Amino acid sequence: MDNKNKKVIRDIILIGASTGGPNAIEKVITGFTQDINAAVLVVQHMPSGFTKAFAERLNKKCRLEVLEARDGYKIEKNKVYVAPGGYHMVVKEPGVIRLNQEPPVWGVRPAVDKLFISASSVFSNRIISVVLTGMGKDGAQGTIEVKRNDGITIVQDEETCVIYGMPKVAFETGYVDYVVPIDKIASKIQSLMNN
């Protein structure tokens, strides 16, 4: 790929996690500085009722504004949107969050794949996706779609995962660009954003 003539702006960060995810997500989000100049969309496998408290806790610890997503929210930079438990979070043109209660994917709702795949069709090469600790294979198909649309794909390394399931399956697709320890993911994302 020849990026010499045209600089790609990477300003959409997608994060998916399951078991062990809340602490991992907190490490990534609190590692960002205010001038990240990107929007962050998060799917954490959690039942309904828990995601609002999770978003509020992150909001207190983080420089960026963290919200539990609502249907119709416009995606804005320097905001973090957490998918509400019990709802898939998808992205529609021109960058609007939609929530739905379509059937679970891989037994979960929200599903990482739903977010990654829908965002890829809207934002294509502007995306950096991250699959963090968790059981199962949610996020693998989405990782493929992000890479096929010229986004950048990251997974958490085995050593720092509580459960090396989702990152492992995503890595095994052959579509992962970087394998990174949890405490280095925020800085890795920031270094990639304007390359």
Score class of each variant (00 low, 15 high):
Gln44Asn: 05
Gly142Ala: 10
Ser18Ala: 13
Leu67Thr: 09
Ile182Asp: 15
Lys184Val: 03
Gly134Asp: 02
Cys161Pro: 08
Glu56Tyr: 06
Lys6His: 12
Gly142His: 06
Glu145Cys: 03
Asn5Lys: 11
Val179Tyr: 04
Arg109Leu: 01
Arg109Cys: 14
Ser48Val: 11
Thr160Glu: 10
Lys147Arg: 07
Asn23Arg: 13
Ser118Gln: 08
Thr133Asn: 02
Ser129Glu: 04
Val28Lys: 01
Pro181Ala: 14
Asn149Met: 14
Thr173Leu: 11
Asp157Asn: 14
Met89Thr: 06
Tyr87Ala: 10
Arg98Gln: 14
Glu102Ala: 13
Tyr164Gly: 02
Gln101Pro: 00
Ala39Trp: 07
Gly49His: 03
Gln156Pro: 01
Gly134Arg: 00
Val40Asn: 08
His88Ile: 10
Arg57Thr: 13
Ile13Leu: 14
Asn100Gly: 04
Asp35Arg: 06
Glu26Thr: 11
Gly72Pro: 01
Asp150Thr: 00
Tyr164Asp: 01
Val155Asn: 05
Asp150Tyr: 11
Glu102Leu: 12
Val66Gln: 10
Tyr81Gln: 04
Ala186Trp: 11
Leu67Pro: 04
His88Gly: 03
Gly136Val: 03
Ile127His: 03
Trp106Gln: 13
Arg126Glu: 09
Val91Trp: 01
Thr133Gln: 00
Ala53Lys: 12
Asn195Leu: 14
Ser18Leu: 01
Ser120Trp: 09
Asn149Ile: 07
Val112Thr: 06
Glu93His: 13
Met135Lys: 08
Met89Phe: 12
Pro22Gly: 03
Gly72Ser: 07
Val108Cys: 12
Phe116Gln: 01
Ile163Val: 15
